[in-house]
Every structure is written in structure tokens, then in C-alpha cells.
């Protein structure tokens, strides 16, 4: 089974975020980067499927040059090779643009299965995988908690709300958006890290893939939620004021 795992590099969790001068993104110079956590679960699931059923895991990343370290980490964990669609602008690309770039590269690979994380820890749109499937004309399912390979198809378990699950049987090829926590992610071993050096990491430009990076969506302003404090004086007799206070506590503050 040929499996493509899509990977994004995002700011490390618990990073102290500072908004940049333009007010449209955070200061990247301050940040350390890591593999988007849901994608790490997708990679682990891909590696497990390969170990069980044979085949190949190809890591696909549309990102700026810095994202090469995320691909290298995936190779160290056991992915067979990597494809890096490299462009500085891809660091902040919208979901459609990222999906279009990845679709162009994925098409040439004709994989049996594409795995993505459910969403990214930075933008959190949860759309890239789904758009990618649509662009490739593949069936897709999201919030996947379990993948079972059958002859020419897969059976997946989807997480619904309130403790409900849905089981779906799908034909291959297909795309799955993997839910965090589906498995226990492995560490890159020292031997794996050493081996990764010799694995293929193909660099492609959007131009080579015939993809323009014209954004379809724009971030106008990034800001920290503003805390506001207002004092409201309740008029009237103590009895009336108390009644108003109770009403406000009940219906506005909702603490009663």
C-alpha cells in the first residue's frame, strides 16, 4: 500500500506568541517549530499500516524552507521518502492554496491512501484534507479513530459527538483526516535519525507543479482578545437593585 502522509510544521505548543509589526501574523523569529500534532498521529497511523501490510510511506509537505526539519523528523521515525513543496509563502498559505499544491504533487504519486491530521494547531481550519480529497476526486472521511484495511477497501471508525461513533467502509484510494489520540506516537530513534540522512527528500517549487500561490483568503488582522472592564451601577431602592442584580447574575453572568 502506498501511503502519503501530509505534514505541516507549526509553532511549538505553549509558544509565547507576539504579534508582528504588520499586525497580520505572529513574530516568527521568536518561535520554535514542531510537527503539527494531529499530523504526527497521521504519520504514526501510516507507519503502522505500512508495518502491517507492507508498502511505502511518503511524507508530503507544502511549506517554507524551515519545514524541511519536520520532514526529516518523519523520515527519522520511519517514513521512506519525503516531498517538500517549498516556498516561503506556503508558511501562511490558506487551506485551498496548500491543498492545491499538495494535490498536484500527490496526483503524480497515485497513492492508495492519503492521511492528514484533522486540523492544524496554528490556523485550525480543519479543511485542508477535505479540500485535497475533493481536488483529487477521492472519497474522504474525517475524525478517524481506527483504520482497518480490507481487500481493496478500508473500514474506518469516526468519532461523532457525545460518545457516538460511526463505522464506514470505503473504497481505495481514499483520504482520511486522523483524529489526535488514535495511537501512541513513536519517538525518532538515534538509528532512525542517522538513517534519515540517506533517505530521499525531493524538493519541488509551486511553479514546477504548475500551481500559483495566489491566496483565496486573507488575514486582515491578528490581535489578542481584549479584556474590557465596565462598571454598571444599579439604580433604585436596595430591594429593586437586588432584584436587578439577581436577574443579571442569572441571565447575563449565568452564575446562578
Amino acid at each position: 500500500m502506498k501511503i502519503i502522509v501530509c505534514l505541516k510544521q507549526v509553532p511549538a505548543k505553549d509558544s509565547v506568541l507576539r504579534i508582528d509589526e504588520g499586525g497580520q501574523w505572529v513574530k516568527e523569529a521568536d518561535l520554535t517549530w514542531e510537527v503539527n500534532e494531529p499530523d504526527a498521529f497521521a504519520l504514526e497511523e501510516g507507519l503502522r499500516l505500512k508495518e502491517k501490510h507492507g508498502g511505502e510511506v511518503v511524507v508530503l509537505c507544502a511549506g517554507p524552507p524551515r519545514a524541511a526539519s519536520a520532514i526529516r523528523e518523519a523520515l527519522a521515525k520511519g517514513a521512506d521518502r519525503g516531498i517538500h513543496i517549498e516556498d516561503e509563502a506556503l508558511g501562511r498559505a490558506d487551506t485551498f492554496t496548500a491543498a492545491r499544491a499538495m494535490a498536484a504533487a500527490a496526483r503524480a504519486e497515485s497513492p492508495d491512501l492519503i492521511l492528514t491530521g484533522l486540523q492544524s494547531d496554528d490556523f485550525g481550519y480543519g479543511q485542508t484534507g477535505v479540500i485535497l480529497a475533493e481536488l483529487l476526486g477521492l472519497p474522504h472521511a474525517t475524525i478517524i479513530m481506527e483504520v482497518e484495511k480490507r481487500d481493496g477497501s478500508i473500514k474506518v471508525k469516526r468519532e461523532l459527538e457525545a460518545g457516538w461513533f460511526q463505522y464506514v467502509e470505503m473504497p481505495l484510494p481514499a483520504l482520511l483526516a486522523i483524529q489526535s489520540g488514535i495511537n501512541k506516537v513513536r519517538y525518532a530513534t538515534l538509528m532512525g535519525i542517522k538513517k534519515a540522512k540517506t533517505k530521499e527528500l525531493k524538493r519541488l517549487t509551486p511553479a514546477e507543479l504548475g500551481v500559483d500561490l495566489e491566496p483565496r483568503q486573507q488575514i486582515r488582522r491578528v490581535y489578542v482578545p481584549q479584556k474590557t472592564k465596565r462598571t454598571h451601577l444599579l439604580e433604585g431602592s436596595p430591594k429593586e437593585a437586588a432584584a436587578k442584580l439577581v436577574e443579571k447574575l442569572k441571565f447575563e453572568a449565568r452564575v446562578l
Binding site: 535519525i193 542517522k194 540522512k197
Partner: peptide
Amino acid sequence: SEQERLVRQTTRQF
């Protein structure tokens, strides 16, 4: 190097 940082990261995470 990138590899040195990856070695550190895997150890730190463990």
C-alpha cells in the same frame, strides 16, 4: 545542525 537538534528533541521528548 538539523540532525543534532533532532537528536536533542527526541531525547527531550522522551
